[in-house]
Design a protein around this nucleic acid. Structure first.
Lengths: 184, 184
DNA sequence: ATCTACTGGAACACTCGCGTTCCATAGTGG
DNA sequence: CCACTATGGAACGCGAGTGTTCCAGTAGAT
């Protein structure tokens, strides 16, 4: 039983990574990256669509888990935001796959986690607004999209080595906070 | 002669649009979007790689043209930045193809335009820094990446109708300027 | 009006990734 | 030690997309 789970997890991780870099990645490539035969891959995920959907669901679940682990409800909004950004920068590669799809991601049932995490982030943004850290004139949607965009940019810059290891979170936090701060 | 150029341009525009939405777009789809037979498409671009390279080069050239048309060297840096952002938001769809490639774009020779445009943007950022509008502690690379990220986010939000037609440029400018402003 | 260049449809072979089946092997649990 | 399960390699048919060729129709130039 454990064996199955480990194999499955390895395939999903490899798929998230490979598909994140190149959505047209071959099943053979994914199988090789997972250290698994193509036959085995097909045993776990009968066809490509199954694999993609499972990978999306798994990644969404992993991201949501990370978001909620950052305790977005607790403490001052700015501190919670920093925790959130730090968590997102860490899961950067996982997000790549979900986030980097121009055509969007197929709708999958990934349980209540992602919806809950999304609601928590939105609530956090509203809380930050009430605390005067976010411009009330900006919609929550916009602020959230900027949050992901800046985080993504930071993650990528970090991955390319353009920014020192420890400096990424600081830079992202500063840039994000400045961008959405009230004008006055 | 003119006919050839018009056909060629139509194909390149259709390819930029189709490949921007979906990098795996079929040649038949692209041909149909261009209002051209697949045979004709092959006549202009013998194989897929030729088409992709030509489309990349054409898009880079178009983007560079727009950047330079915004006169990034002239006037106060903040005004030039606003002109630049307005131009980029307008060419948003064209940029999608070049910008939205996770795996990056094949290296192509697109003439001196793109390099010149890139240099102009970097010079503009340095000028903005000297005028006190950009934090000297942030690298030009980072500021430039944030500029594209925020512009892209604005373009997308506008395309989805989340933001009022006229408001996109204002929102992007405000968010960008706030994000990269000196701390004090 | 005629000639030329451009076009696009049809048909073809070819490649490549996909999904399947079969079988031999290795590792696990009783 | 003996089932039993998971694995992966080999081989196959299949379909889609690609690149090519041939040919008939058409629009533009002279």
């Amino acid at each position: 039983m454990t064996v199955r789970n480990r194999t499955r997890a390895a395939i999903l991780a490899a798929a998230a990574s490979a598909l994140g870099r190149n959505r047209a990645a071959t099943l053979a490539e994914i199988a090789e990256a997972a250290g698994v035969g193509r036959t085995t891959l097909h045993r776990y995920f009968p066809d490509r669509e199954d694999l993609v959907r499972a990978t999306v669901a798994d990644s969404l679940r992993a991201i949501a888990e990370n978001v909620l682990a950052a305790r977005p409800h607790e403490g001052p909004a700015r501190e919670a935001l920093r925790r959130l950004i730090a968590a997102m920068v860490e899961t950067y590669e996982r997000s790549l796959f979900v986030w980097g799809e121009p055509a969007g991601v197929p709708e999958v049932d990934a349980g209540p986690g992602p919806a809950e995490a999304d609601a928590a982030v939105r609530a956090l943004i509203e809380r930050a607004r009430d605390e005067g850290a976010v411009d009330p004139a900006m919609s929550v949607d916009w602020v959230q999209q900027i949050l992901w965009a800046v985080t993504y940019t930071g993650g990528e810059a970090g991955a390319k080595g353009q920014i020192a290891r420890g400096g990424v979170v600081d830079l992202v936090v500063r840039t994000f906070e400045g961008g959405v701060r009230p004008a006055a």
